[in-house]
């Protein structure tokens, strides 16, 4: 069984962005440029927040559209990015129906969740958790 980041209840989210900053801090950098998790308001803060994570699809559309096979489907669900193969075409971004693939402008390649769960450790309100892919 493999695990992924799952949203427990997006209504618990306060929009602090600690998870995004944590994801970026995997590289010991300060910012949002390398985050794989995305929090935004649902059309204004009064409507609450949208928590966008990679759902680790069993049959991932992002991998299907990759012309270079740079997104390797993982056994049990999800994908792994092979950066040397990636040509930065951005098809994967468009293919993901959740908008869960952000772009790393610096290297001009997608940011793909590694299912490490580092962001979960920094969510103060239990919005996200690590869960086995069902």
């Amino acid at each position: 069984m493999v695990r992924r980041v799952a949203v427990v209840d997006s209504d618990l989210c306060v929009g602090c962005g600690s998870c995004m900053l944590a994801c970026n801090r995997r590289f010991a950098e300060v910012g949002y440029g390398k985050t794989a998790i995305h929090i935004r308001s649902a059309g204004g803060i009064e409507r609450g927040f949208v928590v966008i994570v990679c759902r680790a699809c069993k049959n991932p559309p992002c991998a299907k559209v990759c012309p270079e096979d740079a997104l390797l489907p993982r056994d049990g669900g999800g994908v792994r990015l092979l950066p040397n193969k990636c040509i930065g075409c951005g098809y994967c971004v468009e293919a993901c129906p959740f908008g869960a693939i952000l772009w790393d402008e610096e290297v001009d390649k997608p940011v793909i969740c590694t299912y490490c769960g580092y962001c979960v450790e920094y969510c103060p309100y239990g919005v996200i958790e690590m869960r086995e892919v069902s």
């Binding site: 950098e29 300060v30 910012g31 949002y32 440029g33 390398k34 985050t35 790393d104 402008e105």
Partner: peptide, 8 residues
């Protein structure tokens, strides 16, 4: 707006 990643 911005989403740079800054070096430490």
């Amino acid at each position: 707006s911005g989403r740079r990643s800054l070096e430490v």
